[in-house]
Design a protein around this nucleic acid. Structure first.
Length: 348
DNA sequence: AAGTCGGGGTG
DNA sequence: CACCCAGACTT
């Protein structure tokens, strides 16, 4: 039995993975689910999908929404440029296609936030077009079954896997096949400990025969991690709090935060030095001052150490933009990085 | 072609 | 702790 036939067979006999958008024909819902699920586990993305569909049942609702509200709904999901591109593309489709999702692959992949994987997913799920998806699951399944030792994250590997994926696509039912191979990778051909003993493809699996299961797929890129030290000053004047939006090309772009000072070494803010710093910066002493313990967060490429310093002042420092002061009760309307979000939940 | 973008699950 | 997840964009 061919690989393709086996995957289809497994799907009809053993695959019982269910997802709310599975079998959906509305390209808007398929697109939304695919953007949310980029580099994100289904279980993690699911509640966000539900929230978005509830708040934005159609692409027009999303296009008409305020940025800040959409980012608030995305808060905690990570990779925030996905959210920015989602909004941009919703508005683009409303403007240029009367809100009707384009139906051919070339137009789909042209859209912001949609790359080869997402374009193939939309084209095959929504329009039954013969484009093979290539995601982390597919790389793993193909590399093991066919014994491909070329690194899947190299330019050469990407070409080999793209051709292999397309060659094995079931052109008559591309949507069903694409869904099936990803479900297979997510439930049977698992990354660390695959369920080879209950895999109906195991007798033809090259990696299993050669003892390469725990080596494939091969990845060559090495993850570089850097450590950063953030001190967030939570300035407060009566019930007004200072916040700012992150704009630089950096982590958490477009989210909000408190006044940030980043330092090279480990931050060590004693009361005295904060007082001096405030005096130098703003010619004011704090009325009250509270320093949090040093918190940390592990990101994919960065380790963040962070400390919050709450400072009550008599008046707003003229150096800080007046428009950035916000009533405390409106803090919940803005999307914050996880560290700030947790700080807010614990302190306000 | 290489770097960068989050947060959570898993072994 | 390291690795991975329905990847895409920037330089």
């Amino acid at each position: 039995m061919s690989f393709t036939t086996s995957i289809i067979s497994w799907n009809s006999s053993e695959n019982n993975r269910s997802m709310p958008w599975k079998g959906a024909k509305d390209p808007y819902k398929i697109w939304l689910s695919e953007i949310i699920l980029q580099q994100t586990r289904v279980a993690q993305g699911l509640p966000y999908y539900e929230k978005f569909i509830q708040n934005f049942p159609t692409i027009f609702d999303l296009a008409n929404a305020e940025d800040q509200f959409v980012f608030k709904l995305w808060e905690g999901l990570g990779y925030y440029n996905r959210c920015r591109n989602l909004l941009f593309t919703a508005r683009y489709i409303v403007e240029n296609y009367d809100g009707i999702f384009p139906k051919n692959y070339e137009q789909i992949i042209e859209l912001k936030g949609i790359g080869p994987y997402t374009a193939a997913a939309i084209a095959s799920f929504a329009f039954q077009l013969p484009y093979a998806v290539l995601d982390g699951n597919v790389y793993r399944v193909l590399s093991r079954y066919f014994g491909i030792e070329t690194p899947s994250d190299s330019p050469e590997g990407e070409k080999i896997f793209a051709k292999l994926a397309q060659d094995n696509l079931d052109k008559k039912k591309p949507g069903v096949y694409n869904q099936a191979i990803m479900d297979f990778g997510a439930t049977i051909c698992l990354p660390a400990i695959p369920k080879c003993n209950q895999c109906i493809l195991s007798k033809d699996c090259t990696a299993l025969a050669l003892g390469l299961i725990n080596k494939l797929p091969i990845k060559e890129k090495i993850l570089k991690k850097k450590t950063r030290y953030f001190t967030w000053f939570v300035f407060r004047v009566n019930d007004q709090i200072f916040i700012q939006q992150r704009r630089a090309k950096d982590i958490w772009e477009n989210l909000y935060e408190f006044f940030l000072v980043e330092s090279e070494g480990k931050p060590n803010w004693e009361n005295k030095s904060v007082n001096e710093w405030l005096e130098n910066q703003f010619k004011q002493h704090p009325k009250e001052l509270e320093i949090s313990p040093v918190l940390s967060q592990q990101l994919t490429h960065q380790k963040i150490f962070a400390q919050f310093i709450q400072i009550s002042l008599d008046r707003m420092p003229v150096q800080l933009p007046k428009a950035n002061w916000l009533n405390i009760k409106n803090l919940t309307h803005f999307g914050f990085p996880k560290l700030c979000k947790e700080f807010i939940e614990q302190n306000f």
